[in-house]
């Protein structure tokens, strides 16, 4: 009788909740899917991009089945800790603040932040020249932190939910410049909308991009091992060349 009740409860629960107790060997990878060329969706609704390809290569090496779970950027670290997925491979830079919330693997590419602005303006990013200018960036990113820490309240910083929305506002003229990851900027400058814009100055800072897992999760060691293997056997280079004509490792 007791067992019967438990069974009923469990059956009811599976209707409401997504239970993953049965599929032990299946891992979920968390991806934002709004950040081309690293992660976005194509017309069939499939997640594509550099992050996804690396993630799949790692899963193949670890001999596990993987499933993609998408999340909003703002909530992507909380979602990892809320067990919405098992590892987070979404162009996440390693920072001290983030290290307090999650554990990171070794880097899978190097990143830097660089300004872009219209070709026909003379753009300098010292404090005096930026006075009264509006700079856009994505909320909860390295670039946002850097802008806030460097300029504070001296310039107007606009924070967007997605990087794409910041680009839309650059073309509509609401922004004087954008600070963002170099490779995302590179991809956008190649697009039709980006033809009148260019990189300005040197990259302002560099950092490492790595996969995040929950604190103390042994999955980290497995991912590190698999990462080493795909770099050594050339899988990594193949994926790199698919997206960029230069190495981003």
């Amino acid at each position: 009788m007791q067992n019967y009740k438990k069974l009923l409860l469990a059956a009811a629960a599976t209707l409401v909740f997504s239970a993953n107790a049965l599929a032990v060997e299946k891992l979920k990878m968390g991806i934002e899917a709004a950040y081309p060329p690293f992660n976005n969706k194509d017309a069939s609704g499939t997640v594509v991009g550099f992050d996804k390809d690396i993630g799949e290569a790692l899963c193949a090496k670890m001999k596990v089945e993987c499933e993609v779970v998408t999340s909003d950027w703002d909530g992507i670290i909380p979602a990892l800790n809320a067990k919405k997925f098992d590892f987070l491979i979404s162009s996440l830079s390693v920072t001290d603040e983030r290290k307090q919330a999650v554990d990171f693997t070794d880097r899978y590419y190097s990143n830097m932040q660089q300004f872009i602005a219209p070709k026909n303006v003379d753009f300098k990013y010292d404090k005096a020249s930026l006075k009264g200018k509006t700079i856009g960036t994505q909320r909860a990113t390295q670039a946002a932190t850097w802008l806030e820490d460097t300029y504070g309240d001296d310039i107007s910083i606009k924070l967007y939910d997605t990087q794409e929305n910041a680009y839309l506002d650059l073309t509509s003229g609401r922004l004087d410049a954008i600070l963002a990851d170099k490779y995302a900027n590179y991809e956008w400058l190649k697009s039709k909308d980006g033809t009148d814009y260019e990189f300005k100055g040197e990259p302002v800072q560099k950092d490492e991009v790595a996969i995040a897992v929950r604190k103390g999760d042994p999955l980290r060691a497995k991912l590190n091992l698999a990462l080493k293997e795909i770099i050594e056997d050339g899988t990594y280079k193949k994926i790199n060349d698919k997206y960029f004509p230069f190495s981003i490792y």
């Binding site: 703002d74 909530g75 670290i77 909380p78 603040e97 983030r98 307090q100 919330a101 856009g136 909320r139 909860a140 946002a144 932190t145 606009k158 924070l159 967007y160 939910d161 506002d169």
Partner: peptide, 22 residues
């Protein structure tokens, strides 16, 4: 907050981006 205004929700989301106390 989705069009970059820092009203209460936007401000809260920006703070969470720094301290992760969701």
């Amino acid at each position: 907050s989705t069009v970059t205004l820092l009203e209460l929700t936007g401000m809260t989301r920006t703070i969470i981006a720094r301290n992760y106390q969701t």
